[in-house]
Write a protein that binds this DNA or RNA. Sequence first.
RNA 1: GGAGAGGUGGCCGAGAGGCCGAAGGCACUCGCCUGCUAAGCGAGUAGGGGGCUAAAACUCCCUCGUGGGUUCGAAUCCCACCCUCUCCGCCA
Length: 426
Amino acid sequence: MLDPKFIKENIDYVKRKMKERGVTIDLESFLTLEEERKRIIREVEELERLRNTGSKKVGELKRQGKNAEAEKLHMELKLSSEKVKELEDKRTEIENEFRDLLLRIPNVPHPSVPFEKNSSGNVEIKRSGSPREFDFEPKDHVEIGKKLDILDLDRASKITGARFALYKGLGARLERALINFMLDLHVNEHGYEEVLPPFMANRDSFIGTGNLPKFEEDLFKVDGTDFYLIPTGEVPITNIHRDEIIDEEELPKNYAAYTPCFRKEAGSYGKDVRGIIRQHQFNKVELVKFATPENSYAELESLTKDATRVLELLELPHRIMLLSTGDMGFSSAKTYDIEVWIPSENTYREISSCSNFEDFQARRANIRYRPKGGGKPRFLHTLNGSGLAVGRTVVALLENCQERDGSVIIPKALVPYMRGVERIHS
RNA sequence: GGAGAGGUGGCCGAGAGGCCGAAGGCACUCGCCUGCUAAGCGAGUAGGGGGCUAAAACUCCCUCGUGGGUUCGAAUCCCACCCUCUCCGCCA
């Protein structure tokens, strides 16, 4: 959520930024509504003031035994009280409308974000490792997984449906090994606090991170409740501190968590239908930071670095992309995508997305901090990034580390987590 | 799922239609005092929104779990929901 005051005072800037994002927001009607809101607040408060002082007077008169006078005033107030109620209804209506509109306005991109309406404007920041030259025809992860009997997509679709996976044997162990490896790295070496949050969250939490009210069609709702399955750990973790005021001394707060993620993937029916690149359920290790506005961009860099470290230790070729205005998520002010090399697709694919939301989520979720030495609470900045998407890491690993004989060599860093298994073969 | 108890400021806790944004305590901050420390004395310490401001000061409105209702007036009465605790049932 943007600061209404900021919108008002920088209307042209905000308009331009929205345009760069490729979204159309009716900011004129926003301003009108904002005026209307203030007008009615003034009106209601004036009436309430009169009623309050009047009511107090009635009490005083009664205590003094002047019942006739009290009764007279009482009758007068009865009328104005009705008026107050009417106006309050109107006020609620307008404030709701105002809030609804505000909740549907995306974040303003940071000035360092390149302007382009789509992903063609993304800028490569860094590349690490180079795609392997195979001296044989490499297979894709589906084939590898099938041959090694570690990935069974046919049976998964029997159990549930398309876009679900059944891992078996060393495949299941590999998934679990990666989760533990990533968590240990972030917790023990990068200083994140490990948490294990609920995998469902309520509506308020989703509004807090910006997934609602706009993106309901992407979510699985749990029937008969107000809960949704989380599409990312970002939702429960960011909401750990909803409606809280944190002392500045405690910032930055860094959390790491493993969660499964559930996504409807509506609108991507034709995309990535083969394999486990795009699933309705997948595992992820998520990193979330709460930082001061002064430090949040430095924290974005270190967050991205922490996530990238996983790929470095796994020795997987990857690159870091700075997303352009048109390719960023709704809540983000600046986003780096980390992309890993996928041999079967002969391209890099997103495996992590690291964003600074500035105070956009904090404002929605009401997360503030008290500055050192006291003073008014301020909204803090929230950040998050995958560290990493586990399913896609498996894909990258199987494909990049495959051998001519169909076996897969486990990267050294992961071997201890595989209970010493150095190679998966049939 | 059933029965009961309860949700009040940073924390503990009183208040049971008007004198209550709220006693008292703890904690914290500032000042005084005591050679340091402890104790003592005095003052202060919630959040949001509106008006006025360059900004404050100031002032008004809202907030006692949330939302509705009754009333001239609600922390206090009524209804619904949420959450916590205890007991019973069921369950990993």
